[in-house]
């Protein structure tokens, strides 16, 4: 049922319970799901050998197929990891942009990405960890520590949004310098391996490296639902939000923590995949035309960008496979710019 006074929203009632649905966001989410399904099937079909969509569907459904090895063992895990990483990054970006009240904020800006990178590169370059085995743990730990440090330093009688971004930039710059030091000081071969990790790649991704990300996302779902509701008042200035009864400090801490955890885990699973967390929420916002960054559309946009970028990364210079992080910017940036140019919204 549509609301009479509130155009653009639908109200779903069940007894005394009622749910408010932003119609355009719901439609965009549906569209993104369809596009995502198409991209996933295309990713599973295309490769050194082309597999028909019918065979792909068979494999995904677990039916016997001659293409089981190529699709099921080689391509599917990589696509699934891409989906998980993209979802995590899109959601993390939306949460952090909401907390920072800044469309330029993202895990890359508030220290998480560089925290993960510096830790992995440092430990890899000095041979403490092998670049595949323990790197995810190192990345998660490094991202978490850096993100929490930035949040703590930005705290002064409550979180100051601008301090959050500025301190994040400061810490990120310091950590990127540190990363450069590790790369030059470290052993040549190890440093090379670290450099590959730094571009963000899904090459050789398997369930064992990223399956746990599915559990993290599942656990994040209730928190995201809670955050989505609070977003209706958190997008005002602080005084208005408090006046509406929002426990501002608590909700911001919850949103920032979830964003930091998700971004750290994404970096752990695939390395730092550039730009997805920044642009996915902004693309989703312009598609959904909602008053605040739409969390679920952002997550879906993130997934779509990463899976599509990885498909391009695999096929563009085939048989050479590019790291996905090289392509995400190439896919998303022109689209975001096109949206910015034709939309009525400014960049602010």
């Amino acid at each position: 049922m549509s609301s009479v006074t509130l155009r653009g929203y639908s109200v779903v009632r069940a007894g005394r319970a009622s749910f408010l649905l932003h119609r355009r966001s719901a439609l965009v989410a549906l569209g993104l799901l369809v596009a995502l399904a198409g991209t996933v099937v295309a990713s599973l079909c295309l490769g050194e050998s082309t597999v028909s969509p019918a065979e792909v569907v068979k494999v995904v459904l677990g039916r016997p197929s001659p293409d089981q090895l190529v699709v099921g063992e080689f391509r599917l895990p990589r696509v699934v990891v891409g989906l998980l990483v993209g979802t995590a990054l899109g959601l993390a970006g939306a949460l952090i942009q909401t907390v920072a009240r800044n469309p330029l904020a993202s895990p890359d800006v508030v220290g998480v990405t560089w925290g993960a990178t510096a830790t992995v590169v440092g430990l890899t370059a000095y041979g403490v960890v092998g670049s595949t085995g323990q790197a995810p743990y190192a990345a998660v730990a490094g991202g978490l520590v850096a993100g929490l440090l930035v949040y703590a330093l930005a705290w002064r009688r409550g979180l100051h949004a601008q301090r959050f971004v500025l301190i994040g930039i400061g810490i990120s710059v310091a950590l990127s310098s540190l990363t450069s030091v590790f790369l030059t000081k470290g052993d040549g071969f190890q440093a090379q391996a670290a450099k590959v990790w730094m571009t963000g790649s899904l090459n050789g991704s398997g369930y064992d490296q990223a399956g746990w990300l599915a559990w993290v996302l599942l656990a994040a779902l209730p928190v995201a639902l809670w955050a989505a509701r609070a977003q209706r008042s958190i997008s005002f200035d602080d005084a208005t939000a408090v006046g509406l009864g929002l426990r501002l400090d608590r909700i911001r801490l919850g949103m920032a923590l979830l964003g930091i955890v998700l971004a750290s885990c994404a970096a752990g699973a695939a390395g730092p995949v550039d730009f997805v967390a920044l642009m996915a929420p902004q693309i989703a916002l312009r598609l959904a035309r909602s008053a605040q960054v739409p969390l679920f559309c952002s997550a879906l946009t993130g997934a779509l960008v990463v899976v599509l970028a990885d498909l391009i990364a695999r096929r563009l210079l085939a048989p050479t496979e590019l790291p996905v992080g090289v392509v995400t910017g190439m896919v998303g940036a022109p689209y975001l710019m096109w949206l910015l140019i034709r939309s009525r919204r400014g960049g602010s």
Binding site: L6, S235, A239, T240, G243, L244, R344, R345, S348
Partner: peptide, 22 residues
């Protein structure tokens, strides 16, 4: 009502007013 409240960009009047019900 604070001195200079800020609303999310592009929000409609009805949407704004509806948020008073939070």
């Amino acid at each position: 009502l604070p001195q200079s409240p800020t609303a999310p960009e592009g929000i409609s009047v009805a949407d704004l007013v509806s948020r008073g019900r939070q």
